[in-house]
Design a protein around this nucleic acid. Structure first.
Length: 204
DNA sequence: GTCCCGATTCCCT
DNA sequence: GGGAATCGGGACC
């Protein structure tokens, strides 16, 4: 008994996360974000953020109260608040102290879709439920209370698992979205041709 | 203490 | 394609 919606799914082990986010990120594609209330969605778009190496990372200038989770143990959820209304969800990577993480930018709802619709009353179509970092967090009910949640142990009911689907052989790689610094880092990956990815606003 | 702007989303034109 | 909503983090005085 795994406690997951499907007993054949395997929770990703701690070691999966203990690497550079640019390695972890593309491997998170096609993995599944799971909440214990039955919500599950396939991760189809991610971005890497690399601490002191990365001027666009929240952790670039060192640890603060807000980014403390990012500097902790890999495999935990770093949740941040932005634009006065949106939450973003990241998987902490690397070694403690590095401030590495992978932003979960978009996912395809698989299970618990009705709960996601309730959490996102403004979404017209199901493909709008989690096609962006703020949308994904809202669809799963992720907020400040989930900052620091253990994605491996599932202490707060949020985990990442695999159903055996491998990451795409040739993911789409390109610049990250919504940042103004280090815009040249090609650290955004998504599943090719997927309907549920966020559409990159072409500016900034 | 003040000020700027953000790892965004939604609605209108 | 443009702009509003909304507020906390962090840089700087």
């Amino acid at each position: 008994m795994t406690g997951l919606p499907d007993p054949t799914w395997q929770v990703l082990p701690r070691e999966f996360y203990r690497r550079h986010p640019a390695l972890v990120a593309p491997e998170l594609l096609n993995k599944i974000l799971v909440r214990s209330d039955g919500r599950a969605a396939r991760i189809v778009e991610v971005e890497a953020y690399a601490g002191s190496e990365d001027p666009a990372a929240h952790s670039f200038r060192g640890r603060t109260a807000r980014t403390a989770t990012m500097f902790g143990e890999a495999g935990h959820l770093y949740v941040y608040f932005t634009y006065g209304m949106h939450w973003g969800s990241n998987a902490v990577c690397g070694e403690a102290g590095e401030g590495f993480g992978v932003l979960l930018r978009a996912a395809e709802p698989l299970l618990g879709v009705e709960l996601m619709r309730q959490a996102r009353p403004r979404a017209r179509r199901d493909r709008d439920l989690a096609s962006g970092p703020g949308k994904l967090s809202q669809a799963f009910g992720i907020n400040r209370d989930f900052d620091g949640a253990d994605l491996v142990g599932g202490d707060r009911g949020i985990r990442i698992a695999s159903d055996g689907t491998p990451p795409p052989d040739t993911p789409v790689v390109g610049p990250r979205i919504g940042i103004s610094r280090a815009v040249e880092f090609p650290w955004r990956w998504h599943v090719p041709g997927h309907l549920h990815v966020s559409v990159p606003p072409r500016k900034r």
